[in-house]
């Protein structure tokens, strides 16, 4: 099926985007990402440990930017300024690469986004030439504001980051999807395969996840399950589900030709 996900003018086959945190080691990271089929992988930007373990392998040696679309993120940033600085460093690190994931957090306990700071950072980044995929609250009005600023993908949470609580407000997601002309991806909250399928059946263009795979009992197997769930959910959405009916007076088998009639 030719059904690409187009983000900032580039077409991707996979609608599953994955994070690279919380894995046991780089080998497991790579194996899980391969099993997920993801083409876009998100990474965090952190200070190097100067003088410590100079021979330590680098994440980008395990996930070469020639093979994967690296999506640097601003996880851990609580102000627009920190997020913008982090992504300018990321652009330098990745030789001018423009596609980024903006997230500005508001609260360390819930990791809920700070939307005023997110809007502010989005404006600066779009003006500065970045292609901004933006993590946001599931608020259709602010999602539209982010789109109007020029973000290339809107990424509302389904539930809190790392919570695995699934899709808590499908109707808000539907409002965001129905309003948007750019891709809408669920970012955060997916716990298991059915959550990913539900997001896609709602009409999301993709799903971004990390903990649901990395914290599974068998991360590589869960990565494979997520790949199938995203594909299944997408096909179900495109196929169009049957209407819900409390009762059906319309059985699947013929009502004529029964023996003894």
């Amino acid at each position: 099926m030719n059904d690409p996900l187009v983000i900032a003018g580039k077409a991707y086959t996979s609608r599953l985007l994955v994070g690279t945190g919380k894995y046991k080691d780089f080998a497991e990271t790579r194996e899980a990402i391969d099993a997920s089929g993801a083409e876009i992988v998100t990474v965090a930007i952190r200070r190097t440990n100067i003088g410590q373990n100079p021979g330590e392998p680098n994440l980008l040696d395990v996930l070469p930017p020639e093979r994967f679309t690296i999506l640097p993120n601003t996880a851990g940033c609580y102000t627009a300024d920190d997020a913008v600085r982090t992504l300018r460093l990321a652009r330098e690190l990745l030789d001018g690469h423009a596609l980024v994931k903006l997230e500005v957090l508001g609260d360390p306990r819930s990791l809920f986004p700070n939307m005023p700071e997110t809007l502010k950072a989005a404006e600066t980044l779009v003006k500065d030439g970045f292609d901004v995929m933006v993590y946001c609250a599931d608020d259709p009005i602010q999602a539209k504001m982010l789109e109007d600023i020029g973000c290339c993908a809107i990424m509302p949470l389904a539930s809190l980051i790392g919570s695995g609580m699934g899709i808590l407000n499908p109707w808000n997601l539907r409002l965001i999807i129905d309003n948007a002309k750019v891709p809408v991806l669920v970012d955060a909250g997916v716990g298991t395969a059915s959550d990913a399928a539900i997001a896609m059946e709602l009409g999301c263009d993709g799903v971004l996840m990390n903990t649901a795979i990395a914290a599974a009992g068998k991360p590589v197997m869960m990565a494979s399950a997520m790949r199938k769930a995203v594909e299944a959910g997408r096909e179900a959405f495109l196929a169009g589900r049957m209407p819900r009916k409390f009762y059906s007076a319309d059985p699947s088998s013929p009502t004529q030709g029964l023996i003894g009639s």
């Binding site: 994070g19 945190g21 965090a44 930007i45 903990t211």
Partner: peptide
């Protein structure tokens, strides 16, 4: 990167040196 060789550090500079790490 192209300017690493020419930019000299001065007293009071604040430097950040970063890499990509695992994250979501």
């Amino acid at each position: 990167k192209a300017r690493h060789a020419e930019v000299a550090l001065t007293d009071g500079d604040r430097l950040e040196i970063v890499v990509a790490v695992g994250g979501g």
